[in-house]
Write a protein that binds this DNA or RNA. Sequence first.
DNA 1: TATAATAGTTTCGCTGCTTAACTATAACGT
DNA 2: ACGTTATAGTTAAGCAGCGAAACTATTATA
Lengths: 151, 151
Amino acid sequence: MTKSPSPPKEIVEEALDRFWETVPPLWSQIRGYIRSAAAKNFRLSIEQFQILRLIRSGRGSVSDLATAKNISRPAISQAVDALVKGGLLTRTQGIEDRRHVQLALTGRGDAVLDAIFEDTRSWMRTKMASFSRNELENVIRSMESLKKMVD
Amino acid sequence: MTKSPSPPKEIVEEALDRFWETVPPLWSQIRGYIRSAAAKNFRLSIEQFQILRLIRSGRGSVSDLATAKNISRPAISQAVDALVKGGLLTRTQGIEDRRHVQLALTGRGDAVLDAIFEDTRSWMRTKMASFSRNELENVIRSMESLKKMVD
DNA sequence: TATAATAGTTTCGCTGCTTAACTATAACGT
DNA sequence: ACGTTATAGTTAAGCAGCGAAACTATTATA
């Protein structure tokens, strides 16, 4: 609309306000859904679900996951432990660097992740039912922007 | 751009993909920041911070907060307990309905919330430094859309 | 008035997180 | 080659957050 080459000022504040009034409650809602519905059916906590999701997206080590989730390595190590015991994940010692432990989903882990993910997505789809094409494209663009804030 | 009156299809999936690859890591990052920086300076956990924030935004009861955060009433009750002990919050029994407990920030609670909030916002501002006016306006609009998903 | 509904709290047990200390392996400087 | 330092991960202890169930107190309803 307007042609401002340098960073704005009050617009930033407005964006921050909107962010804070939207994202936390929305995320709470999603967490709540996963906890009550999906997690209950598949015996998986939200944190475990997140870890599976991150592993499938390419984070293959404890350190990677700790960085991505912004929590300590021991916390990840313990969570991974439970997932390995549950047969959803495997640990494999690295061959190049033997300190490294490669994490990978088992077939069952993959299937469970698919199931929860699809369940949650379909719930979100209904929540987005009223969105216009324009709104959706807007969301997509703004997600691409916000992604730059990570790391 | 395009003129579609009815709900789209693959655009929804695209929006969901972007959402999932952006929001969880971004939110993790923010939580991590609050935990390590702000919380450490002010001896306040993220959950306590959130509760103060919600109370100031108008949620004045345990039930309200439980709904907003999508967690159980006992969980809120316990968190409120700690905040009252810490002198950041007051409980006042309702006069109309004596079952109701009105929660309110103390002067100190207000000040602490301001401090953490401003600290976090200024950190986020630097993260948004590279955003163009257009991107920011986009974020604002999409937050308005996403807000409709809550509740 | 008896019964049901609502607001909040207490208790108990579980999970997730952190810090500190530890093992094992790799890289580096001398 | 060797001692130091750094890195990857784990274990252990303790605390915070959460839910389920059971409870108190108050208000609404039949």
